[in-house]
Amino acid sequence: MLTSFLTAHKQAFPQDHHLWPLHPDPPLLPPEHEIMVKLCALSGYERDQVHLLTPRTFFAAGGVWGGGEPSLTTPNLALERPLSRLMLGISMAKSPDLEARGLSDRHLELAVAEVAQMMLLAGGGMTYAGAIGTHAPDLTAAVIDTVERYVRAAKHEQHRHSGTHAAEQRLHPGDMFTLTVPRMVLSNREALDQLTRTTEALAAVGRIDVVDEHGHLTDVDEAQLWTDSGPKVLARAYSEVRAALPRFCDARLLIGGKTISASETTPDGYVGAIPGVVEEALYTVRAGQPLFIAGGFGGAAAVLAHELGIGAGNPVSEASLAAVRALPAYRDAVAEIADGFDPELTGLDAADLERLATTQRASELAGLIVRGLSTGATVAGGTDA
């Protein structure tokens, strides 16, 4: 299709050196995108003026159209890889009001998968503090599945276009995924054995480490099982882990999150002095990193957006508000986050921050995150390609 179009277009417009082919999703992977751009360049078009995009990647790159030629406010994702080696930390958990919003576990998994796919396309990676099979929905598995599908497709494209030399080419600028597992979730040998197997399977695309109760990294094969289930000990341990998380990423996204503490009546509640998503937001702000709040999936992220005065159209559970506002530690954390939160670090304007705080569309959420991060990378002078 492209060769036919190039032939006809060159004959009709011989002086035209710019191209904006828009095609349906999914986006082209970098190996395929590169060969298409080379083909256009060989046909006489300027390489840096060839933009092969889908509606989703056009939006994520800050595309503007109307009143003349289209334009992008950030680099073309698959071609320029503007987020090379940038790691997005994801704080996520199923919110207690997810179903009340007409959403299911699958919606949360899709949102996480979409963000992961767009980050990979732009050259970045994800990091998450969790373990496999410890929560429902299993959001760790959703990210790992996206990475594995990306790797399979990218290898296929490399082999298709490069033949026997495909193995010599690097699939990605850096780690695609890192998992920092709190030692406290490793309460039995089965969980540790599963983690060991996954570590071996993901060795080519990322890494898995255990974070101990002091916030220090430990190799999986040296990790010790956790045996102390006392609530005060657990709360301190989780706080140490959460305080260490900014060391492993460049920005953080909040999705969902528990709002009621664990107890006999709510065994699936959060563990610690305050909701984990809020505590991780606090340490992100203290580290001076961009903080993205996706409030449309409810939970602690929606509460935090409400308390920061963004996402006014987003309904927030009164029970969730009451539960967290009753805690002095929570109120202090929100006050500090509100004082230190810098919207400009996100690379998004006020309208986009509102959309981020309210949207339930996975593709829009992913596009906003990558657009903001790409804008920040461009302003900072870019990242290593």
Rank of each mutant, 00 (worst) to 15 (best):
R85K: 13
L304Q: 01
A166S: 12
V303F: 08
L365A: 11
V147N: 12
Q289W: 09
L186R: 04
M119I: 13
R286Y: 12
I208C: 08
L179S: 00
R355G: 10
A113D: 06
L79E: 13
G347V: 03
T74G: 10
V334R: 07
G296D: 02
H135T: 15
A302L: 09
S4V: 04
Q224C: 12
A78F: 02
A301N: 09
V370L: 11
L356P: 00
D193M: 13
L202F: 07
G376L: 07
V181T: 15
M126G: 10
D352N: 13
G66Q: 11
P231K: 10
F341P: 03
A244K: 05
H18N: 04
A131Q: 03
W20M: 09
T74Y: 10
L282K: 06
K38F: 01
P82E: 10
L72Y: 02
P31F: 04
I132F: 15
T134I: 15
R242H: 09
A251N: 04
E336T: 13
G347N: 03
L179T: 00
G272W: 04
S263F: 01
G311M: 01
M87W: 02
E114G: 11
A366F: 07
I144M: 14
L83T: 02
T140W: 03
P14H: 05
P55V: 05
P231H: 09
Y283Q: 09
E213V: 11
A322C: 11
A312E: 14
H135W: 13
E80N: 11
